[in-house]
Design a binder for these strands. Structure first.
Length: 806
RNA sequence: GCCGGUGUGGCGGAAUUGGCAGACGCACCGCACUCAAAAUGCGGCGGGAAACCAUGCCGGUUCGAGUCCGGCCACCGGCACCA
């Protein structure tokens, strides 16, 4: 073809982006006739910094799958929105004295503009933003439903608190003892906070994992985080005190081996009976020392057990009536089980170390190991345990012991989780107001549903109060209200919801984003839900992914959604590291701005590169030279137009190359093996160059396969050469012809004793049975085995022949 | 400590699941085009003169091992005094 201009992404990309925008090209169809595909990528928090190359990679995976699905004839929902409540906007608001709403709106526009410059095929007609009243009305609505079903409660307990951000954090938000927002050390403080009873859903969240297509690593992480264990609660009587000390153990079968007890330093029973404790001074000193230890110090001192014996108090082992001492020690946590344990030094390593240090008895009750060296935690026959000595394995022993305890009324079967209830309030401004009212007469009352949304009032000062209260507490017109139940004067809750509230159900809003009667209609949900494929980061596995599964399962239980699980399939992308192999960060100066790449090479090159750079799920360092190589490939594709001849179909000599490429690309996109799919297309382009010309049919096949990755250049080539009547986004996904993949002869490797000694062409139809006769007759084989004794011949059709000689 | 994962050329990474290790790309080298350079096209590119040696290390199974089994080592991610 003559007069092909040079490839200039800057001009063609903007042109197609405008066209897609103007024609609403990627809007999901309202009709429910076609099979559907709901592809979801995690909507971003619209930070002031704009998009990161990590966003590009995170979205590009399902971008490719979604574009392929449209070409395959599916009705595709591939939406985008913004998780726009959150601390960074609020902190920036405080710094610049600008309303967070203004900042957020500006950032959202910036993000959207950038996403459009990359050419993502999002359905912008369904855009949502969690900080808009139309949206958070329904976040509040779901919260009230949780409240109505007794899944919201208020409790004063030790909470994770970030002194820098001045907020209470959930357990999930303070992993590793660091604040998720600012990475300061989190401290433990007693505070009155709202909780969502996610632990109530622990078993359902575990069971649900068995029904979904998630990678094993994600399932494992959630299972570990939930941390379910089974065992028993046992009551120990305390000498001279009317109250009993309840403990939790996973090894009730070792009850005869209990030689002391340990309580957490924060255990409430201590204060209650402090006059009975004769060494209270020592106890108090120890508690103070513990309270001062940071999370870091506590983990560092893991091996070195500390504690104080309680003088004046003793416990009684309920199975044998023996009196045993009680200690307090910080290796027992108030936040797990009952905050007290029965110590069995013979069969628990921590108890063993404590016993060695504090001189407690060690009584073996399970056979095995060598308890003069360490605790024996394995299975075995019960010994020194009265009538229970009959049992010779853990499972039976535990069952028998629980049965025994239950009959005597001193113990019961129990289940514990490491996961804790979700601390659900923040003492900050930029979040969903919690729709609850405190009435002196009626207690806590929900805001009536018909009064939603409870809108966030304007304030002048976004700074949190010094008393740890939200800025909302300073607005009297907001705080003072009437009780919906009794009509008397009441006060509003002034805390807001945490960052993760809005994202816990956003996938539901996308199916029906403009509905003002419900968060989404059942009709739309029945068609679109569940999300067919959800891609996102590993960092969300124990937060967003867990929280949203919890909300969705709750909505299912109360009949508001149609599926128990929100996401049928989940995948994740690997990090993009800086070119130095380190995590990208401003301070290291290794951050790549995606828009710089767009300016220099074009959006198609950027898209191609993030998918070609390596295994999609693995971390890989950025490499500017490789970006150039991707641009070079697109230049080569562009110049195929110079080689175009008049042929319409696929020429015979290239049929194998074209059809095997169609097969490979079609399969690899589905497996997110984008790097090898692109490699296959590069190989095909190399074959076109080797031949020096390409037919219209061959070029069309290539640009259709490439379209999901590089939509602009391929649409432009199609338009310039008029290869297909329709735009590629409407064209049909190419199908390979299996007949074209069959060859008459195939090359196989010729091995002697497993070592390659040559290659030869053999008929593709050659079977294992005919192999012996065929190969022994050939010159090549005769030459190689001359004078040797052939013991065996192994033939793998299409691959190799191995002759074993002695 | 427990759970999950990774380890292959100078680099990013392939390898149809036990069958020709190093696809594809980058970097590099050579040739062509050019006064020259860039760009582009074509070719080469694990090591070794070769026999051979090479997929973190040691052993095993097999006609054949990057892939399976046993034992180590290193790194990454998650959990962690969870009773």
């Amino acid at each position: 073809m003559n007069n092909i201009p040079a490839y200039n992404p800057a001009s063609i990309e903007g042109k197609w982006q405008k066209h897609w925008d103007a024609t609403n090209a990627f809007a999901a169809e309202a009709s429910h006739d076609k099979p559907k595909f709901y592809g979801l990528v995690e909507f971003p928090y619209p930070s002031g910094a704009g998009m990161h190359v990590g966003h590009i990679k995170a979205y590009s995976g399902l971008e490719v799958v979604s574009r392929k699905r449209r070409m395959e004839g599916y009705n595709v929902l591939f939406p985008m929105g913004f998780d726009s409540f959150g601390l960074p906007a609020e902190n920036y608001a405080i710094k610049t004295n600008t309303h967070p709403h203004v900042i957020t709106t500006r950032n959202v526009e910036h993000f959207k503009d950038q996403m459009k410059q990359i050419g993502f095929s999002f359905d912008w007609s369904r855009e949502i933003s969690t900080s808009l009243p139309d949206y958070y009305k329904w976040t509040q609505w779901i919260f009230l439903k949780l409240f109505d079903h007794n899944l919201v409660f208020r409790a004063k307990t030790l909470v994770n608190y970030c002194p820098h951000c001045k907020v209470v954090l959930s357990n999930e938000d303070s992993q590793g003892g660091k604040c998720d927002v600012c990475h300061s050390d989190v401290v433990q403080l007693p505070k009155d906070v709202w909780y969502l009873r996610i632990t109530e859903y622990a078993d359902k969240l575990l069971e649900g994992l068995e029904t979904v297509d998630y990678p094993e690593s994600i399932k494992q992480q959630q299972v570990t985080w939930i941390g379910r264990s089974t065992g028993a609660f046992v009551d120990f009587t305390l000498d001279g005190i009317p109250e009993q000390l309840e403990i939790y153990t996973t090894r009730p079968d070792t009850l005869y081996g209990v030689t002391f007890m340990v309580m957490a330093p924060e255990h409430p029973l201590l204060d209650k009976y402090k006059e009975k404790i004769t060494n209270w001074d020592a106890v108090e000193a120890y508690r103070d020392a513990c309270a001062k230890k940071t999370e870091f110090e506590r983990t560092q001192l893991q091996k070195d057990k500390t504690g104080v014996k309680l003088e004046g108090l003793a416990a009684v082992n309920p199975v044998n009536g023996k009196q045993i001492p009680i200690f307090i020690a910080d290796y027992v946590m108030m936040g797990y089980g009952t905050g007290a344990i029965m110590a069995v030094p013979a069969h628990d390593q921590r108890d063993y170390e404590f016993a060695k240090k504090f001189g407690a008895d060690i009584i073996q009750v399970i056979e095995g190991g060598d308890i003069s060296v360490e605790a024996y935690t394995g299975d075995g026959k019960m010994i020194n345990s009265d009538f229970l000595n009959a049992y010779d394995n853990k499972k039976d022993s535990i069952a028998a012991m629980i049965d025994f305890l239950a009959k005597k009324g001193i113990g019961r079967k129990g289940i514990q989780y490491k996961m804790k209830d979700w601390a659900f309030n923040r003492q900050r401004y930029w979040g969903e107001p919690i729709p609850l009212i405190h009435c002196p007469k009626c207690g806590t009352v929900g805001v009536p549903y018909d009064q939603l949304p409870l809108t966030l009032p304007d304030v002048e000062n976004f700074e949190p109060g010094t008393d740890g209260q939200s800025p909302l507490a300073r607005i009297e017109s907001f705080v003072n209200c009437t009780c919906p139940k009794c009509g008397g004067p009441a006060k509003r809750e002034t805390d807001t919801m945490p960052q993760w509230a809005g994202s816990s159900w956003y996938f539901l809003r996308f199916v029906d984003p403009h509905n003002d009667k419900a968060f989404a209609s059942m009709d739309e949900m029945k068609y679109w839900m569940p999300v067919d494929w959800y891609n996102g980061g590993m960092e969300h596995v124990t937060r967003h992914l867990l929280y949203s599964r919890f909300w969705h399962r709750f909505l299912y239980d109360i009949g508001e959604v149609n599926t128990p699980e929100p996401y049928a399939k989940r995948s994740y992308q690997g990090l993009i590291l800086g070119s130095d192999g380190e995590k990208m960060s401003k301070s290291k100066g290794n951050v790549v701005d995606p828009l710089d790449i767009v300016k220099q090479y074009g959006a198609d090159t950027l898209r191609l590169y993030v998918l070609f750079m390596g295994d999609y799920t693995a971390a890989a360092p950025w490499n500017d030279d490789s970006v150039k190589g991707c641009r070079r490939f697109l230049d080569r594709v562009w110049r195929l137009m110079d080689m175009l001849n008049d042929g319409e179909g696929i020429s015979k000599d290239l049929a194998f190359d074209v059809h095997s490429c169609i097969k490979k690309v079609s399969e690899d996109y589905e497996k997110m093996k984008f790097n090898t799919a692109i490699a296959a297309m590069m190989t095909l382009v190399n074959a076109f160059y080797a031949k020096g010309q390409v037919t219209r049919g061959e070029l069309l096949a290539l640009i259709q396969l490439l379209n999901p990755v590089a939509p602009h250049i391929t649409e432009e080539i199609n338009q310039l050469c008029k290869l297909s009547d329709a735009e590629l986004i409407r064209a049909q996904w190419p199908k390979y012809d299996p007949a074209a993949l069959v060859k008459d002869t195939v090359e196989v490797a010729l091995q002697i004793n497993g070592k390659v000694r040559g290659r030869m062409n053999v008929p593709a139809s050659l079977t294992r049975d005919d192999a012996q006769a065929y190969f022994m007759d050939t010159e090549e084989v005769q030459k190689l085995i001359a004078g040797k004794n052939v013991k065996k011949l192994v033939f793998v059709p299409g691959r190799l022949v191995n002759i074993v000689v002695g």
